[in-house]
Computed example of a mutant assay.
Amino acid sequence: MPLLPPLDGARAVVFDAYGTLLDVHSAVQRHAAAVGPDARSLSDTWRQKQLEYSWVLSLCGRYAPFWALTERALDYALARHPGVDRGVRSALLEAYRVLDAYAEVPRTLAALRAAGLRTAILSNGDAAMLDAALRAAALQDHLDAVLSVDPAGVFKTSPRAYDLVPERLGVGVSETAFVSSNRWDVAGAAAYGFAPVWVNRAGLPDEYPDLAPVRVIDRLDALLG
């Protein structure tokens, strides 16, 4: 398989998990009937607060497992949407443990490995979250490594989080393509020195012009040319 830039010069392709390989909105979608008309708004608030909490803790020099932030963020989202029955909380959290993978993910990962590239995840998710999600999506066999930021004790976009990739994979920073649907994560990867690819599924406007991706795609299998 011919590889397109930046993969043609890479030895490893590292993916963000939540939002990139796994659909973070699929948890609420599964229970949309029980949640009601506020389903999309609830899901957006849940995700927004989950990420906000990670950034605030990192800037404060503090850390908590990502699952704890996921629970806190859902509680906030439910409080902001009082019309949603709080009895759905347990079902939503359970669904978040086993999020749906985007349809093209298994084929893309398999093709990249077949082309001789190492594939890995670097995620804010803690190890238990990632293990449950990857088992549910049957993705484990397509990955050479699954890295949580837990050992660094800080969330992305701290350079200490990205340090885990060369330390654990033994691949040079300049030889690593980093793929994320989160523009802030792409900015962090660019600042660190990876070759970042932005999966812009929603067609969002660009941000962080000084920390640009080397490539923008709208779905993962666009990596395959």
Rank of each mutant, 00 (worst) to 15 (best):
V199G: 04
L112N: 07
C60S: 13
D150Q: 14
S58P: 11
L211I: 05
V98S: 11
S90D: 15
S148T: 11
D210W: 13
T45G: 09
W184R: 11
A110H: 10
A39L: 04
L164E: 00
D221W: 04
G36Q: 03
D210F: 10
L4S: 13
R113C: 08
L99D: 02
Q48R: 15
A189Y: 04
K156E: 02
L143G: 13
T176S: 03
L22W: 04
D206A: 15
V199T: 06
T20N: 01
A12V: 06
A195C: 02
D150H: 12
H81F: 10
T157Q: 11
D44R: 07
D131S: 14
D44C: 00
Y63K: 05
V179C: 06
A103K: 06
L139M: 13
P6T: 11
F194K: 14
Q50C: 04
A189P: 01
A103S: 07
A39Q: 08
L7G: 09
P166L: 07
P196M: 11
L74K: 13
G203H: 04
S181Q: 09
D206Y: 00
Y76G: 02
H142N: 12
S58R: 15
P205M: 00
L4K: 10
A12E: 10
V165W: 10
L3M: 14
P166H: 07
V24D: 03
L134R: 09
D44I: 03
S148F: 08
A137S: 13
E175Y: 03
D150K: 11
V56P: 00
P209D: 10
P196Q: 09
P213E: 08
A152G: 12
A138Q: 08
G125D: 03
G19A: 12
D141E: 15
V154M: 13
S158Q: 05
G83W: 03
Y76H: 15
S26M: 06
A189D: 03
L42E: 05
A17N: 13
V28D: 03
V13Y: 04
W184K: 09
G9D: 09
N124E: 00
S90G: 14
A133Q: 08
D185G: 07
P37F: 11
D38P: 01
R201K: 07
L130P: 02
K156D: 01
R97C: 01
S148C: 10
L134G: 02
N200M: 05
K49D: 02
G188E: 12
R86L: 00
